[in-house]
Design a binder for these strands. Sequence first.
RNA 1: GGCGCGGUGGCAGAGUGGUGAUGCAACGGACUGCAAAUCCGUGAACCCGGGUUCGAUUCCCGGCCGUGCCUCCA
Length: 456
Amino acid sequence: MALSLYNTLTRAKEEFAPIDPANVRLYVCGPTVYDYAHVGNARTFSAFDLLARLLKHLYPKVTYARNITDVDDKIIERSNQSGEGIDSVTTRTTAQFHADMDELGLLRPDIEPRATTHIPQMVAMIQALVDKGFAYAAEGHVLFHVPAMADYGRLSRRSQDELIAGARVEVAPYKQSPADFVLWKPAKPGEPGWDSPWGKGRPGWHIECSAMTAAHFGEVFDIHGGGLDLIFPHHENEIAQSRCAHGTAVMANVWMHSGFLTIAGDKMSKSLNNFYTARELLDEYPGEAIRLALLTAHYRQPLDFTKEKIGQAKQTLDRWYGVLRGLDGVEAVPVPAEVLAALQDDLNTPLAFSHLHELAGAFHRAANADEKWVAAANLKAAAGLLGFLGQDPEAWFRWAPKGAGLDEAAIEAAIQARKDARKAKDFARADRIRADLLAQGIVLEDGPQGTSWKRA
RNA sequence: GGCGCGGUGGCAGAGUGGUGAUGCAACGGACUGCAAAUCCGUGAACCCGGGUUCGAUUCCCGGCCGUGCCUCCA
């Protein structure tokens, strides 16, 4: 079975055909580094992390790029408010972002280009657009002239008339057409800026992705991804810049967009105060459970995010890690065909997870050690492709939220005390010890090999 | 107003032109000193109205409801 992906450009699922099977190129719009990443970001990056994993499974070489936007109005604003230097804000936030994504269990992208290290490429691209008549300078700005591009709006399926009619914002006086967008803007005194043919300034938001993909991937590449909200204007404008600068028919062959999430039924927003940062969730739940919760719905579907969902995901992982617990490692086997097939069908994670559940069930129902071994190995291989069940099972069961009370020595001591009580048939005392542990979030399981524990 | 997405059991969530996944929850049973974990079993759904069809939850049309985007936004 071949890989098929839903392409926003054609609004259809298509069989994926790499431009160069020896190097599949995937670009995802990364964070603007001025604040903590939130669950919405985590969802998008989890979805594309999975795509990168799948591509790497299917092709010998995949280059996964995810940029860091480190020059932007919001960064400047944040710096002005707090007094913290811009470099400090971006460096600190980037480090935090990396720590959060690592803890969620995401692979680092192969390259992570930063906007500020690609200014010359952006200036050159803007110059090319000016030279070709797609852009013009006005009052220190350089603007892309949308009417100059005949088929602008293909990705978002918007006509230029609609754009003009629907313009909600006041149109800047220097724009020739209301839909024109900024490629370069002048730097005010005290703002970061770079010298350019149009004076000291900084790039507009969209140009960085166009310049960086061209620098690292060439004029046309395989897959470009991001959140649903980036379709317009960000990706539409990237396409306009890249295609007009290079004279190509497309910028990327496949455009993929992940769906939005709501928080307990409401749109995530700061005014509703229902904004979860990745960090605060990671203090409370294991990253692997958070990521599983984010992947339980198909990536293009809306996802209603609740802490209860993370709790369920944790329970699921308890069950799966329970299969691996006590086994002396399992040998690597190929990924089960049905799991691979589910993922190759536009990343159908819910279907893939249902197969993992079946494998866990097969393990427990197995009549003999060989069958158990096969089920466990298959589960491990399938989960491995998805980036799950990679840690030591005992470490998983011992994971504790930030500031959790009981330490492991105290738990072990209580278990020993209970064992003695049971031996003496003092079940009242044994049950009291168990109840005390449960009250502190520790669940005991008595098995043939003795008593094991986990955090609820 | 324009463009788009969705309505599946108590909840989550796939999928399919014809015996309606999977998980959680519930209920009964096994196992256990009692639990937990696990196993066995039970009940439980395709928004409404037309159309196409031998047959539609699945395709088409209409309606209702919800929701996203329309130049900050993953």
